[in-house]
Amino acid sequence: MTDQSVAAEPGKPRLSPRKKQQISRAVQYVVLVAVVVGVVLYADWTSLAQNFAKPDVAEKTLPELFTIALKNTIIYTVGGFVFAFLLGLVLALMRLSTVRPYRWISTLYIEIFRGLPALLIFLMITFLPLALPGFTVPGGTYGQAILGLGLVGAAYQAEVFRAGLQAVPKGQTEAARSLGMSAGRAQATVVIPQAIRIVIPPTTNQFVSLLKDSSLVLFLGVSGEYVELAKFGNDLASQYANATPIMVSGVTYLLVTIPLGHLANRLEKRKVRAR
């Protein structure tokens, strides 16, 4: 019985694997074309263009799009990144420390700040003055934004650094210690510089993440000269009752994030080749 079903039935030749693949591919193309044609025919292109890509509204975003919004996005991101980089390195060293309480503190921090939505951290920062009367984050809005991004970014950066530090071969520390370097000196001159090289690609991705998260500054209730790309797009969109400004800030994000993403990929490939 089984033998018969496997054998070719007379008058109905079986398809070769190549033929089967060709048919499957043809079906996929037909479906794809049908979807594209459907979207093109049924979408209301004039209305879409009016709402999302209206040239005169787009023009009104200039020059503040660059002089204020992009500038602030970059300030928040770079500030938060530096904060996250330094705190992340400290947390990673604590996590790998032989001192147990250091490991506890670091693990707790990382678990909490990776587990919470970044938005929640920003909302909490706005309530800090209430919780601590008389306390203000130094640097005003910039300080608050950098603090929020830095606290969240540090948790992720700590894990990136931990992987980097662990990727440096043990023989490196042994060689440094054999030359009479103390444990701290060996870390600083031999292990950390190599770890930083190793983590450059994932750190670039972390930077892109922070750049996108900087849009959460919107929830700090900023206005005027402090707005960044997301808030800027949103404000103008409300003002003109038109989504074009949001599109424009979206494109501006992509102008930065896509090249950075490619850079990270290239650095990653170069690293693989160098091994």
């Binding site: 023989g171 490196q172 042994e174 060689a175 440094a176 054999s178 031999v190 510089p193 190599q194 090289r197």
Partner: peptide
């Protein structure tokens, strides 16, 4: 350790 030189099988030079 400053007075003891050590040479390893895998060299362990600092690659950077």
């Amino acid at each position: 350790r400053r007075r003891i030189g050590m040479v390893f099988q895998q060299f362990n030079l600092f690659p950077h």
